[in-house]
């Protein structure tokens, strides 16, 4: 059975759309158009409503993500400690805007609202690894390992 059908089967009884899309995200890293169409068909929910949901919530993405996901915390604590300049630098260095993926599909840059590790702000997370108390020069060092 196809992956998507297995996920749908898991949720079909309850018809809980949000957890279903979360599982698709976890499996594919994004929501491919064909999976959304399949879900609409199988659960008998209008395609427009599934699409609406997929674009409303921030944790869903309709485009594939890069190999490395770089998240910059833009919570208030990180903001007052200078996080916007970290984002600007990453945008400059990677040549993309926050929310985009580099052409070589290596990096996706995103900003998040708060990771709750305010003591470590400004905070950058690359593939689940936390880099706390970051500044512009430390960021260079950190990025070096991933740019290779």
């Amino acid at each position: 059975m196809r992956k998507i059908d297995r996920i749908i089967k898991r949720h079909k009884k309850k018809g809980a759309l949000v957890p279903l899309l979360q599982d698709v995200m976890a499996e594919y890293g994004y929501l491919p158009q064909r999976t959304i169409e399949r879900i609409s068909q199988e659960l008998d929910i209008p395609l427009s409503q599934v699409y609406s949901l997929a674009t409303f919530y921030k944790s869903f993405s309709l485009t594939p993500r890069g190999k490395y996901l770089i998240s910059v915390c833009l919570g208030t604590a990180c903001h007052v400690r200078g996080a916007p300049r970290i984002v600007e630098k990453l945008e400059r260095d990677l040549g993309i805007r926050a929310g985009e993926t580099t052409k070589d599909s290596k990096f996706t840059l995103e900003t998040v609202n708060c990771l709750g590790a305010c003591a470590l702000g400004p905070l950058v997370v690359i593939d689940g690894k936390y880099f706390g108390r970051i500044n512009l020069s430390r960021l260079d060092e950190v990025l070096k390992d991933y740019l290779k």
Binding site: I36, P46, L47, S48, Q49, Y51, S52, T55, F56
Partner: peptide, 26 residues
Amino acid sequence: AKSAISFINRGADREVTTPFKIGSLA
């Protein structure tokens, strides 16, 4: 009872359109 269109995105980016912004089948 066709739900061919819906709101997408949120906040200042909200708009009404068809799924994937392409011709609607519904």
